[in-house]
């Protein structure tokens, strides 16, 4: 058993931190509704997301630290560089692209879950399988649709 047993999914510490993160999301979205507070709202929501990511990483059963670090590193480098360099007028394209990446990530998660299910050899419960299929379809539509939107806004097509 890990020393971080309180970080088991549903454990006390993890639940408490998630609740803090969700509160920050909601405050962030609320502040995003007005231009004067939108910047602060964005930072607050980002803070919430940082807490959620760290909490998830501390959950029992996490592994493959090298891959996780590499993913976080590459993602952060690309994200920060792009958002610093992007011109204000190119913002719509950037929003479209980032949104697409989110959808694509979800579709890939769904794929890896299916592979997991197949490899385990046991029957996949429908309450797991149906959300996976939904995530795969909608995530994939969102990824490709957003890429087309990006290409159109960037005048590539």
């Amino acid at each position: 058993m890990s020393v971080l047993a309180v970080f088991e999914p549903g454990g006390d510490a993890a639940t408490a931190l998630y609740i803090v993160a969700f509160s920050l999301f909601i405050i962030g979205v609320k502040q995003g509704t007005h231009p004067t507070t939108a910047k602060r709202g964005n930072l607050i929501a980002a803070g919430g997301m940082a807490i959620a990511v760290i909490t998830t990483l501390l959950l029992d059963g996490m592994g493959n630290w090298g891959l996780i670090a590499a993913g976080l590193g590459v993602g952060t480098a690309v994200g920060v560089t792009a958002s610093v360099r992007v011109r204000m007028t190119e913002m719509p394209q950037m929003v479209a692209l980032y949104n697409g990446v989110g959808g694509g990530a979800v579709a890939l998660i769904a794929w890896s879950e299916i592979r997991h299910g197949i490899a385990s050899g046991v029957e996949m419960p429908l309450d797991e399988l149906i959300p996976i299929l939904f995530a795969a379809v909608v995530g994939s539509v969102s990824f490709w649709g957003s890429n087309i939107a990006f290409a159109k806004l960037q005048d590539l097509i």
Binding site: A21, T55, T56, P92, N99, G102, I109, P131, S142, A149
Partner: peptide, 27 residues
């Protein structure tokens, strides 16, 4: 495009929520 991007954004959110159910992750 604004409407489409906003709609796709909603799609991404919904699919992430579905993935949350599959992974059993509340966040």
């Amino acid at each position: 495009m604004p409407v489409v991007i906003s709609l796709l954004n909603a799609f991404t959110g919904l699919s992430a929520a579905a993935a949350g159910f599959a992974l059993d992750n509340v966040a």
